[in-house]
Design a protein around this nucleic acid. Structure first.
Length: 427
RNA sequence: GGGGGGAUACCAGAGCGGUCAAAUGGGGCGGACUGUAAAUCCGCUGCUUCGGCUACGAAGGUUCGAAUCCUUCUCCCCCCA
C-alpha cells in the first residue's frame, strides 16, 4: 500500500497538493516535517507527526526531521491568538538536543538509502544576514500573498495584533523548504493541517525563486470526540520524556481514552494493519468493558516510546492500583517490590517520628507533602469524598493519622480522586 | 494631537456606598452511575492556627464603611486628525 493510501484509510490525511500522490508513486521521494523546539521534549501531540514520518519511511521514502532552531526563535503565529515569547539561544539549544534524542528512537537512521536524517534550520540561517534574506527571499513573495493566509488574517483582524517578527515567520519556514528542496532534493513538506499555509509559502518560493516544483501534504489535527484538547491530563501535557511524564502515567493516559477516540487513535498511533484493527474493534464492541482497544493502544505506544521494561512496570502498577488486589497485598512485598509498583507514582517522604506522634490529615496532605496545594483544598476534597488513604475513604478533615496506619510500618497510599495515586514513605 | 470607553477570580462577564470572598456561563477538580469510557446528574472552585486575614490594574484620599465616590499613575480598546 502506498504512503498516501496508508494515511487515507487511517484517517490521517487532511489535504494534499495535486500531483503529490503521482510523485510519490514514481519512486523514492525525500520529504520533511518540522518540529517545534518550544520544550526540551516532544509530547503526544507531536506523535502524530512522528507516525507520519514513520509511514513515509516504511513506504520507501526518505524522511527528514527538521528541528526548528531558527523558526523556534521567531515563533509561529498559526493557531496562536497572542504574540509568542521568544526563546533565547541557550534554551533553544537545550531543547533541540532533547528533541533530537527522542526522534532518533522512532525513525531508522541506519545507512539504508532511505535512512532518516535530522536537520536544524539554524545551520542555514545563522549566517544568513537580514539584507541578503529580504533581497533573495522576500523579493519573491508579495505581502498581499502573505496577508491572505488565515493565520495572518486572524491575527490582523483580531485585537492582539501581530509583530513583524511573527509576520515574517512564514517566509522563514518557506525558505527552509526552498533550502531543503535545493540542497537536499526534498520535494515534499508535511505537517499538521494548521501548517498548510506555511508549507504552501514554501512551495510557492520553490516555484518562483527556484523555478521548480515542490509539494505539500497535511494531516488531521488530533481531536477528542468530546471536543476537548488532545494530549493533556490533570492539567499537564503528556510528554514523551519519562522524567516529565512517567511511563505509568503515559500508559494510563492512553488507557483512559474513550471508546470513540480509541477507534481513531488506534489507526493513527499504531502500525497495525487494517484487518487487524477491524478485528480488534469487533472484539472491543462485543465486550466494551474489557477495553481491548484501549489496552492495545496503550501497550503499543508505551512500548514504542518507553520500551518493554517500562511497559511491564506500568502494567504491574496498573494491575495493583486498579485491580482487585486489596491493600493487604502490599504487606506481602518487600521494599523493592513496593517501590517498583509505585515507580511511576509521585511519592513523598515524611518524618517517621512526627507520624508516630500523629498528624492531622490536612497537614499530612498539604503541609508535609505537596499532594494538595493548600489545607483548605485538602479539607474540601475530603468533605466531598474525594480522598482515600490505603484505599479507604478519608472520613473527616480532622482525622489524625499515625504510625498505626502505616503499611509495612512504612507506607501510606493516598488517592486523590479515583485515578491519582500518591505514595507517602515514612522514614 | 483631540474625543470617548475600559481594566473585576483560570477565562468571559455582572456588580456601581454596606446584605460582596463578589451573580451568571465556560473551564478545572471531585462525587454518583459505569467499564479507570462516553452521556447524564450532583458538589467544590482565595488563604487560614476557623478568631480572622488578603483580595476587584497601581498608589493615595473621602467615609463609621469602598470593587463601587475623588485624585494621580500605568496599561488596553474605539472614533476623529
Amino acid at each position: 500500500m502506498n504512503f498516501v493510501e496508508e494515511l487515507r484509510w487511517r484517517g490521517m490525511l487532511h489535504d494534499i497538493m495535486p500531483g503529490t500522490e503521482e510523485l510519490l508513486n514514481k519512486g523514492m521521494v525525500s520529504g520533511y516535517i518540522g518540529f517545534d523546539p518550544t520544550a526540551d521534549s516532544l509530547h503526544v501531540g507531536s506523535l502524530a507527526q512522528i507516525m507520519t514520518l514513520i509511514h513515509f519511511q516504511l513506504a520507501g521514502h526518505k524522511p527528514f526531521a527538521l528541528v526548528g532552531g531558527a523558526t523556534g526563535m521567531v515563533g509561529d503565529p498559526s493557531g496562536k491568538s497572542a504574540e509568542r515569547n521568544l526563546l533565547n539561544e541557550e534554551d533553544l539549544q537545550h531543547n533541540l538536543n532533547g528533541i533530537k534524542g527522542q526522534l532518533e528512537r522512532f525513525l531508522d537512521f541506519s545507512d539504508a538509502s532511505n535512512s532518516a536524517e535530522m536537520v536544524n534550520n539554524f545551520d542555514w540561517f545563522k549566517e544568513y544576514n537580514f539584507l541578503d534574506f529580504i533581497r533573495d527571499v522576500g523579493k519573491h513573495i508579495t505581502v498581499n500573498y502573505m496577508m491572505a493566509k488565515d493565520s495572518v488574517k486572524n491575527r490582523i483582524n483580531g485585537d492582539t495584533g501581530m509583530s513583524f517578527t511573527e509576520f515574517s515567520y512564514q517566509l522563514v519556514q518557506g525558505y527552509d523548504f526552498y533550502y531543503l528542496w535545493k540542497n537536499r532534493n526534498c520535494a515534499l513538506q508535511m505537517g499538521g493541517s494548521d501548517q498548510w499555509g506555511n508549507i504552501v509559502t514554501g512551495t510557492e518560493l520553490v516555484r518562483r525563486k527556484g523555478r521548480g516544483e515542490a509539494f505539500a501534504l497535511t494531516t488531521q489535527l488530533i481531536k477528542k470526540a468530546d471536543g476537548t484538547k488532545f494530549g493533556k491530563s490533570e492539567g499537564g501535557n503528556i510528554w514523551l520524556d519519562a522524567a516529565k511524564t512517567s511511563p505509568y502515567k503515559f500508559y494510563q493516559f492512553w488507557l483512559n481514552t474513550s471508546d470513540d477516540d480509541a477507534k481513531t487513535y488506534i489507526r493513527i498511533f499504531t502500525l497495525f494493519d487494517k484487518t487487524t484493527i477491524e478485528a480488534m474493534e469487533a472484539e472491543h464492541d462485543a465486550a466494551p468493558h474489557l477495553r481491548t482497544l484501549q489496552k492495545a493502544l496503550a501497550k503499543d505506544i508505551t512500548l514504542r516510546v518507553h520500551g518493554e521494561t517500562e511497559y511491564i512496570k506500568a502494567i504491574k502498577s496498573t494491575e495493583f492500583l486498579f485491580g482487585n488486589t486489596g491493600i493487604d497485598f502490599l504487606s506481602e512485598l518487600n521494599d523493592e517490590e513496593v517501590l517498583a509498583i509505585f515507580s511511576g507514582v509521585p511519592n513523598f517522604t515524611v518524618d517517621k517520628a512526627e507520624l508516630e506522634a500523629g498528624i492531622p490529615v490536612t497537614d499530612l496532605l498539604a503541609a508535609k507533602t505537596a499532594i494538595f496545594p493548600s489545607k483548605g483544598e485538602a479539607k474540601k476534597m475530603i468533605q466531598g469524598g474525594g480522598v482515600a488513604i490505603n484505599k479507604e475513604k478519608a472520613g473527616t478533615p480532622d482525622d489524625i493519622y499515625n504510625a498505626g496506619n502505616l503499611i509495612n510500618n512504612k507506607y501510606l497510599v493516598v488517592q486523590k480522586g479515583k485515578r491519582n495515586y500518591f505514595l507517602i514513605i515514612a522514614e
